[in-house]
Design a protein around this nucleic acid. Sequence first.
RNA 1: GGGCGUUUAGCUCAGUUGGUUAGAGCAUACCCCUUACAAGGGUAGGGUCGGGGGUUCGAGUCCCUCAACGCCCACCA
Length: 876
Amino acid sequence: MTRKTMPKNFDFAEAEKRLYAWWQQNGWFKPESAPADAEPYVISMPPPNVTGALHAGHAMFVTLEDLMIRYERMRGKAALWVPGTDHAGIATQLLVERMLKDEGTSRVELGYEDFLQRTWEWKEKYGGTIVSQLRRLGASCDWDRERFTLDEGLSYAVREVFVRLWEQGLIYRGPRLVNWSPGLQTAVSDLEVEREEENGKLYFFKYPTEDGSFIPVATTRPETILGDTAVCVHPEDERYKHLIGKKALVPMLNRAIPIIADDYVDREFGTGALKVTPGHDFNDYELYKRHKLDIISVMNPDATMNANAGSYAGLDRFVCRKKLWADMEAAGMTTEVRDHRYVVPRSQRGGEVIEPMMSTQWFLKIQPLADKAFAAVKDGRIKIVPERFEKVYFHWLENIEDWCVSRQLWWGHRIPAWYDENGEVYVGREAPRDGREWRPELDVLDTWFSSGLWPFSTLGWPHDTPDLKRFYPTTMMETGYDILFFWVVRMIMMGLWFTGEVPFTTVYLHGLVRDAQGRKMSKTLGNVVDPLDLIDRYGADPLRYTLVTGSTPGNDVNLDEVRVERNWKFVNKIWQMTNFITSNLGDAEQPPLPAPTALDLPSQWILSRLNNVVTVCQRLFDTYQYGEAGRQLDDFLWGEFADWYIEMSKHALYSDDIQRKRDTLAVLLHTLDTSLRLLHPYMPFVTEELWSYLPQRQSALILATWPQPDERYINPEAERQMTLLMELVRGVRLAREEYGVEPGRKIGIIANPGSQRALLEECSFMFARLANAANVVFPSNGDTAPDKAASIVSGDVTLYLPLADLIDISAEVQRLQAEREKLKQQIERTQAQLSNEQFVQRARPDIVERERLKLADLNASVTQIVERLSALDKLS
RNA sequence: GGGCGUUUAGCUCAGUUGGUUAGAGCAUACCCCUUACAAGGGUAGGGUCGGGGGUUCGAGUCCCUCAACGCCCACCA
């Protein structure tokens, strides 16, 4: 059979498309491609928003998860990666509303039913974009199992969960102070509020009391004065003690409110007295609960003032702030306004200032779920990588508040509740059918409520499906640390509560992808890197490889195009290596790998290195250090295999020694084959393509077995010898450079081989091939090296380069003196180490032995140099 | 106010059981179109591993402390 010949370069655009289709059509992304009794390995893909376009963060998670999945698949696991998308309540609704606005209509104008229909239409049309973009990165997920958080099955699961929680008494509904987004006109959870310190003002004024005096008070939000229901001072504060129990009068409204005492008040801050607005401030809301105060809301849902604001009704809150202050100033009630930095809560989505507001919402009692989630990580049933995030996780759970799960949006899972004409609530899986008139709840659930069920809802829960049985609990939850609270914690809580099992056993958190200088990517900065653009120009493999090798767990990664370009060159390098090896093989079958003892030194060396790399990679994979493993492969393939072994192999390949040729080819092929396997999870496309040119019989690399180290080929002695030879070669190269020998000129080498005669004789070809030497000769006893020669010393070996026309003896003396000084310093250090009894007694024996060998080598070297120097000295 | 992370070559970063002369890419300088690869090869320069202290025979690595930068959490009006 004639094998196909390789093109000169890798046409990634063509190959990526072809290979992806080939993998998928063969069903290799499915766990069913593994034996029926294979151990499952499952990842639930963090579902990207349907509104999304692929960004660097997606590229990161796809790369890491695909790497994990491909690795485990090669290890023989039934690897399942469940893909899907999230309906993304707020994001999608905003997008569709913007579209409607362009059409000259609006959500409200369209009405509930029509709006939902338009949103579904939008989803059908554009929701697939992100999914097809994931494919371009090589995502080997099981598309037959793709889910959408709002599809029928998942909606069923959501209703089931909600109803059960209700039945368990964990869901309650009622008026509470919540974070209200006036722009979106919905409640949002604490997590959706971003707190940023901003420049503002602190307004000082006199709070009138009923007896005609006043208490000085300060506020950052004067408009909330209109909703005050108390003034609070510290119980021990001598300044105000006499006023406790009396009444104060709300400015401009003259409403009488109590003056209370609570040690919550900080006597040092502001005036030491506090106005209390339970209807618009979370701290004050606590005071309201403790002191049974009134609660007055002074704003409408759009943050304009309501009727409780008296004459200010109808004004926007910030307009009201100015007007009220001006009026108070005119009334002589104000004291001063100071610049003040304070924390302003803003909507994560819309950016507008969040207003604490009284609102009737649905809540989930979180403590019972949180306790279970806490325990699961504490007792190790779930492991978080990197471990430091466990601390963050615990801290968050220890301070968790009930979760406001209702949203006043239209796009989402509607809360399965109905109201009768008296406003009585019914919660159930379906609308009550008792003939009475029931009005459905219009609020929907927080998007994260449904994504919290993701690991089990996607597998069929609450039905006892075969998938659920086989693939739950899942194995790995890989996602960004920025959604640890939003999503990961909620999945753990929901999973434990409803399935009684952890939803996954390991959480791997990756960092944010930043720009080349480490800045956060932002549209306004214009530094957004588009992964699709990089894929178009370099291919998916270099991008993937760059993302993995540039990152460590939990740390942010800078995405620099320069690195992508460099890794594109790495892809090319592997391509050229493969081309070299396969073209030397011709149409021959793959020769068997010789036994360790039958190998020449370079082959012993490269196989020892290879098996070492396999071992190291395994250790790194076991500890989730994929980046480091990738770099090791790079160093090995380029720095050792290509730069040294392949170059040396030419000696055998171009010789007439058939056996040696076959053996060398076997080593080349074996090393390449093993390396391609190890690299496949990083660079699935180019490795798969290259593998098809190898004379193996298995159908695809994606299903090939993961390499295991073979101890028999580990050979420290061969590595030691090769290290010496490589040092000598580098020494010759350097000497050539330093003396300006023309690159094309072949020079002779006279070797004083010391204890290494056999080694140097066997491997003299290396100098010819790697240092352009004509030959290596070994002078018989009594012969001396030529006077005009450069010396290269390593251990007890000295090489002389007779370069009579180029050598200046005084320069050579200087060179050797410098070398001698360097060696002497090292000898001093090593000697000091070895003469330290503590070191000899307490250090590991192999470390001590290594130092002894080093010292012997150094001494041998310095002896050679000293001898040479004295020889040269006699000349001058 | 708590907690966490980062600080290593000009730039961006590796360096996870403490142990050879601390590495890579990019950039820089010089040389080479040597029959896999110029998308390449060779060689070189460049670091008191943020400061200080400690543990240890031995510290970039472990402990303490300080500093700068960044992030997360948090109810100071």
